[in-house]
Computed example of a mutant assay.
Amino acid sequence: MASSHSSSSLTISPRKLHYDLYSYSYKEDSNTPLVINVLASLIERTMARTQRIVKNCSKVLSKEITTKIFDCREVPDLTIQSYLERIFRYTRAGPSVYVVAYVYIDRFCQNNVGFRINSRNVHRLLITTIMVASKYVEDMNFRNSYFAKVGGLTANELNELELEFLFMMNFKLHVNVSVFESYCCHLEREVSIGGGYHIEKTLRCAEEIKEKGYTQIARVML
């Protein structure tokens, strides 16, 4: 019989998420914000939909929805969840930063209809939007070079991505209170489906993935 400790189920209630979004403690030993789990799952589902679209569409349509913007030469061997956790570990960006980053990702995709989130661009898109969101939300921030190290990029690469992102967003970065709250409500609705939000994790696989990912970007780790 398999051990009950071989896997675990993390249940996030809307109440927990709401409390975390609006009352998060910024202590050094703070736990990873719950919004990271939800955001990772949402993006993974978006990527899965993109794969189905590309698979089912004709070659012509597939070419139309493919873009080289933010594409990396080699797909990082690091899950979205692990990548977001790494960003949090080294930047300590609070939940509001990830919500604003989610707003930016949504706007970016709406403004650029040919763009589709996939395994080749998701990591660069995340580190760019989180860095820009952090600059918008936080009073004090790390330099671009620091975010680049955290994200596994060079400073020049991240600078270029940030500039490209800003122009493609038409510099529309303002997120008012009502918009922020609407996205928070959307995240809460996501976790309320079925009376709770269940994220299944196999601990052994998760650790292997993290080790591989951390080894791959060891050259730029702090």
Rank of each mutant, 00 (worst) to 15 (best):
Y26D: 13
Y90Q: 10
Y136W: 08
H174G: 00
K55Q: 13
M221D: 09
S30T: 08
H174A: 08
E190A: 07
L126A: 05
L203G: 02
S58G: 15
V137Q: 01
L166N: 12
R189M: 11
R120H: 06
L61N: 02
A155N: 15
K63M: 14
R86H: 10
A2F: 05
Y214P: 00
M131G: 01
K59V: 10
H123V: 05
V100K: 04
L125C: 06
L166W: 10
N156Y: 03
Y183R: 04
V60P: 00
L17N: 13
M168K: 10
A40Y: 01
I117N: 03
I69L: 11
K27C: 00
E211R: 14
M221Y: 08
L78H: 10
N144H: 03
M169P: 05
A2M: 08
K63R: 15
L61V: 07
L161C: 12
Y102V: 00
Y83A: 09
F171A: 03
F165G: 00
L203N: 12
E164N: 09
S119G: 01
H123N: 02
S192R: 13
I12E: 07
M169G: 03
Y98T: 02
C72S: 10
R120A: 04
M221W: 10
V150G: 05
V60D: 10
F167Q: 12
C184P: 05
L42F: 09
S145P: 06
K210T: 08
L42N: 09
I12P: 04
K210A: 05
Y146M: 07
D106H: 14
V137D: 00
E208K: 14
K68A: 12
E44F: 02
S4I: 07
N170Q: 12
P33Y: 07
R73T: 08
L163Y: 06
L153Y: 15
Y90W: 12
C109N: 03
L39C: 08
D20Q: 14
N170K: 13
L161K: 01
S13E: 07
L61G: 01
L163M: 14
V150H: 04
F108R: 00
K172S: 13
I193W: 00
V220T: 14
